[in-house]
Simulated scan of single mutants.
Amino acid sequence: MKAHIVTLPGDGVGPEVTAAAVAVLKAVAERHGHVFAFEEQLIGGAAIDACGEPLPAAALAACQAADAVLLGAVGGPKWSDPNAPVRPEQGLLALRAALGVYANLRPLQVHPALAELSPLKNERLQRVDVLFVRELTGGAYFGARTRSADAATDECKYTVAEIERVVRRAFELARDRRRQLTSVDKANVLETSRLWRSTVQRVAADYTDVTVEHQLVDSMAMLLLTRPSAYDVVVTENLFGDILTDEAAALAGSLGLLPSASLGDGKAGLYEPIHGSAPDIAGKGVANPVGAILSAALLLRHSFGLDIEAAAVEAAVDAVLRDGPHSRDIGGSAGTTEVLAAVLAALDALADSATAFPSGARACG
């Protein structure tokens, strides 16, 4: 197949991990006879420095015309003034809204070789396999804001249509997994959560083959640490999802390991590791590229329908997490290029092996 991919390296370690993900996509294209054309654009602090705005019109137009978008990270101390009229994060929020990517998928699995890195006891990490589905274009992040000398407001607003579309996506994903859906809200206090819960209950009538439970967000924060293996697909609103998925990332041992896919109604999507720009290690060549590489695997699967290629990338990453080399955030000493080289070597080693995709194996996302 032929496809056009826009890359948005962004800030901090974003360019380093994005380059690794692009190298893997190029290797996949070469091995499987695809043609991927890459176009790099600016976003975040880098765009503010170059153009005075966090999402230049040229970058937005390129993303809207692309078959998929691969993003690194945005932000950093240079642009961290909370009173600044223009901030890097504004570019990311504007991009999500413009692309209509309302469903953010964040798969979480705990690799056996890295279980010791988790703050939880190993016995609580057995069989942890959760897919978070976070509503991405509504709620407090996109509501009206006010600010005076002594007060501020952030509006949290949801419509039935916004809730229903992401909830239906979560139900469909649950059908392809263990058919368990947990909806997270704060319905004992918030009116938006009461609307959320009633909408989930109504939509559930169309998915009687999926078991549904409701959890309050504060209880869910505790339950993710006490019995994480009990959950399959977790769907929630924007702010709650942002917080819960960062909490859950600690179970895997490092933020650097986890990918995400932001999807709308079409095939095009926005793919990025969940970690931030990590300015303290930017430019040192030590960033963990695994989250970005696994985001590229999600890109192959969800935007291009290339399940075999996506599974090959995931199998190669699995081999490297099992055998090394490991980056510093997961207890090793390897740099970004060393981890990338190992993933590429594992792709080669697995290419003709029937064991690359064992019977019954299920890939993330």
Rank of each mutant, 00 (worst) to 15 (best):
G291A: 07
V317H: 04
D185C: 06
P289S: 10
A29D: 11
G139I: 01
L298P: 04
K2Y: 12
L42E: 12
I274V: 03
G139D: 04
V13C: 09
A98L: 08
L99A: 00
T245S: 11
P77S: 15
V6P: 01
R31F: 15
L105K: 02
T7N: 01
E309I: 13
T192V: 03
T192C: 02
L8T: 03
T211V: 12
A334Y: 10
A58G: 12
A65P: 05
R362V: 15
F132V: 01
E247I: 14
V235Y: 02
T226G: 10
N288G: 06
V86Q: 12
A296Y: 00
R179Y: 08
T146A: 13
L340T: 05
G14S: 12
L244M: 09
V320M: 03
G33P: 12
A187R: 01
A97R: 08
M220S: 07
P358R: 15
L195T: 00
G10A: 13
T355N: 14
E338D: 07
A351V: 15
L239W: 00
A249G: 09
A170H: 00
S183N: 05
V28M: 09
H32E: 13
A47L: 07
S333Y: 13
D329A: 03
D150C: 14
E164T: 07
L114W: 06
C63Y: 02
H111T: 05
E314S: 05
K157G: 08
A149P: 12
T18V: 09
L190P: 00
E135H: 03
A319F: 08
D307N: 15
A334F: 08
A152G: 05
I48M: 14
E191A: 11
Q90P: 10
H302G: 14
Y231F: 13
L347S: 06
S359I: 13
A68T: 00
R362W: 09
L173K: 11
G241I: 02
L8R: 00
A144N: 14
V320R: 08
F38H: 04
A65K: 05
